[in-house]
Design a protein around this nucleic acid. Structure first.
Lengths: 155, 155
DNA sequence: TTGAAGTTTCCTATCATTGGAGAGTTGAAC
DNA sequence: GTTCAACTCTCCAATGATAGGAAACTTCAA
């Protein structure tokens, strides 16, 4: 099997297959006399393993660990589980960070008129107004850099 | 104000301030005769704006748009709102992708014995078994590359 | 005057991935 | 047999946001 077929069969691009080989995530595969890579069924299977692990968000380093565990007949499932839970925790952290951003932004956006007027609590928050919602709802002037700077330097 | 003080006051590292200047996100600031950057109150305020936008997950490009809107006294709040909602959608996509990974991984991990035995539905799933949970729960042999390959090539 | 701390620019690296250039190989049609 | 398209090879560069370091220069206080 050539690299093109291997890419199609595994879901991993040719570029990435070469890359994974270059960084040692996968062992160097066979070569023809002309230097073309030759992929065995086992190689393809390893690539599919990587494809699935990647789609679960595992990093290259974690995939290396998982591959090692996969190839270890005497592994303890507890070790695999530990890698999985460590990754779940990472995912949780990322999710929480994104959801926190989302909450803040949603809250600000909900209170933005969204019309032709310049006043906007979103800009107000970014500009660092103490209470961007109130400011936007009550102020008569837009929250542009100059006006904000004035406000700030006056305080 | 020197760059060190500006970094402390804004929460953005010196490195990143220079970077933001180099890519044109912020205009070049003043310089002393010796070439040291000099930050005005307004510059600091812009940096804080960027700091807050970044902490809400906006990309450099989006921050450029937001800065332009901020500096535009005649902006329509609808434009700001549109940028915000576009970003919320991006956040939603990222969150959903991560949560999907989390769900799958959690499901697999819950069914992993987590003991000294090698059988593990997590590895089984990565290896591409049709039903990794069943396979892991019922098989007598670990799901190592060779055994999987045999299984696959037999099918 | 000296020395530490601050600043400058420039180069490098990260992570995972994509793109391209230039050279060589394969395989099928003519 | 030649030709031509499709494929593959290696190497180099770029992405986006950030960090680290080197070498040279400036500032400021002791």
């Amino acid at each position: 099997m050539n690299i093109g077929q291997a890419a199609k069969a595994s879901g991993i691009s040719e570029k990435m297959i070469r890359y994974y080989e270059s960084i040692g995530l996968i062992a160097p595969v066979g070569r023809t006399d002309a230097g073309y890579r030759v992929f065995s069924d086992k190689d393809i299977h390893t690539l599919r393993f990587i494809f699935r692990a990647r789609s679960l968000g595992f990093s290259v380093e974690q995939m290396g660990n998982l591959l090692a565990l996969w190839q270890d007949r005497h592994r303890a499932s507890a070790d695999v589980k530990a890698v999985a839970y460590a990754h779940i925790e990472e995912l949780d952290n990322k999710i929480e960070r994104l959801m926190s951003m989302r909450r803040t932004l949603q809250h600000l956006a909900e209170h933005c008129h969204g019309d032709h007027r310049p006043d906007c609590p979103i800009i107000g928050d970014l500009a660092g107004l103490a209470d961007p919602l109130d400011a936007a709802l009550s102020s008569e002037h837009p929250t542009s850099p100059e006006s904000v700077r004035d406000t700030v330097s006056q305080s």
